[in-house]
Amino acid sequence: MRSLIDILDLTTAEIDELVSTANDIIADPEKYAHKCQGKKLATLFFEPSTRTRLSFEAAMYELGGNVLGFSEAQSSSSAKGESVSDTVKVVGYYADIIAMRHPKEGAPLVASMKAGIPVINAGDGGHNHPTQTLTDLLTINREKGRFSGLTVGFCGDLKFGRTVHSLIGALSRYEKVKIVLVSPKELTVPEYIKEEVLKAKNIEFVETTDLEEVMPQLDILYMTRVQRERFFNEQDYIRLKDSYILTPEKLATAKPDMCILHPLPRVNEIAVAVDDDPRAKYFEQAKNGKYIRMALILKLLEVE
């Protein structure tokens, strides 16, 4: 029985296989419409989410399965003080697979040790978000046809941005990838990502505070939101939230085939006017999230 807690739980060959399945689902969704008939997905969301939860639910319905669960901690027994271990042990009797989001880092790993059924980490605090990374990888694959040799810029909150950490980890396994890190000094990527991922794997990377300076180099620009819920101090959030706002003017020097990604939701870090630019792929990316989650559910449930 497999779970997905960290994107690095998957080999690059398994990622290729998931991307290929997702592309096949996009091409012929009817073929997959009954693959999970009689199976149940439990969505245990201890923290609010729109896209991730709904894309998991849509994914299971489109595979012919059913969904049960809750969308906030207050409507679960955790409000009464029940531990994650106890909650998932019980859910393991009712469902075939769990997708879990939790504000505490490592909660889905605990769940995978106790549930007795596969657990998918749907985001644990500021730590990991592997299905977002799979979504990002599927989008990059569909837009660029490859992962190797790309220059990928990450911009915004690189400190608490779990999607950034996971995607850097995943991309670091491909050849000749260059990473450009754009953030205010207070929100730089954690030291361990630099030491144990980028430097350890000899990945070329640069850090800067100036987005416009590096814009012409980028094949992918991955924008992120400064997340209010990650700050203990509201004043720090207010000071940093508008650090980078992507506008059509700032895109003037970008490559014509650069691809703009964002895990969404956005607040104001991408101006609405950018949505009409053909390089804006973030809504396409959100759509891809459903397909890659369908592929993942099939894999973890070992459905042929």
Binding site: K104, V110, D124, G125, H127
Partner: peptide, 10 residues
């Protein structure tokens, strides 16, 4: 922020 901070038995 770690799960061990709230689930003491882990």
């Amino acid at each position: 922020r770690c799960i061990t901070s709230v689930e003491q038995e882990l």
